[in-house]
Design a protein around this nucleic acid. Structure first.
Lengths: 152, 152
DNA sequence: ATAAATGCAAATCGTTTGCAACGGA
DNA sequence: TCCGTTGCAAACGATTTGCATTTAT
């Protein structure tokens, strides 16, 4: 269970699993998909869970260090996280029109990346793939700027 | 030539290719690999090229908008760019030990991504793949810290 | 002449940090 | 009790922006 993972991680470093840290942990794992520190903090406030913004940031860093959360991507407006337990590794498609983030997973893709790493003598531990473009809904909405029909 | 691309882009928007903008353009393209706004600015200063930090940022944004530079990745310490002309599209491997960034390109990978997009009805326009791990040099150096069995 | 661009410094904004008060082992 | 932790607010650092001045066209 993640609490134990976190607790053990902290103990190894002589740190404690406080209620604030636990609250952040729970909240982070309650998120279905992605989240950012600020909304996490705000939601905690809304629900009356006491933890300062500073503690949220501090705890998120700890969770990141022990691998319980991942940084999905860093935008100009901050870091987006997601928790990394139970959920299979996956990559993302991001719609440039509506901002939707679509998660996907491809075994072939994973395999291919391993091959590529081997070929280059690189020991890959993890990766992030972000495909930008237009989701099925927005493709139709778009008034294609320049003629299409066939694309390379 | 990139100057013309930039000039035309600007003209279409009723903007001008000033010497400051041109200086940033030249400097950006003089960079072999990646660069960040601050170092670009500092190097320009060092060489006596007059352009304020603000102009560097403003111009970089313009260059980004017209596709002459790409954002390679956003770190906690800022945005890393690279110019995108002449150079084929490529992805990156990042060594967690020494920080080296290795560029690579795989036709198979590109193809596979297209397939994945088609399968999901997503119209991909571009992507970023970042494989993190250890480069050939650092693999050997690593004294596996507390390497215990499980890793994600 | 006119509209755009510049430089500067102040403003933003996400995130971190110093410090005094606090609290669990 | 002893440290680690918290919350606050100030500090930070990258980037943006308001504005008066400068500069192309």
């Amino acid at each position: 269970m993640r609490q134990n993972i976190f607790r053990q991680f902290l103990e190894e470093r002589g740190q404690r699993l406080t209620k604030e840290r636990n609250a952040v942990l729970q909240k982070a794992f309650s998120c279905k998909g992605h989240f950012d520190p600020e909304s996490l903090y705000m939601e905690m406030r809304k629900k009356g869970v006491k933890a300062s913004r500073a503690s949220v940031y501090r705890t998120l860093n700890l969770l990141y260090e022990c691998g319980l959360v991942e940084k999905v991507r860093q935008t100009e407006h901050g870091t987006i996280y997601e928790h990394s337990l139970g959920g299979q590794h996956h990559d993302h498609m991001i719609c440039l029109e509506c901002g939707e983030i679509i998660e996907f997973y491809s075994e072939r893709l994973e395999k291919l990346q391993e091959e590529i790493c081997q070929e280059r003598n690189f020991k890959g531990t993890n990766h992030t793939l972000e495909i930008r473009g237009y989701c099925r809904h927005c493709q139709t909405k778009i008034t294609v700027p320049e003629g299409d029909g066939s694309h390379g």
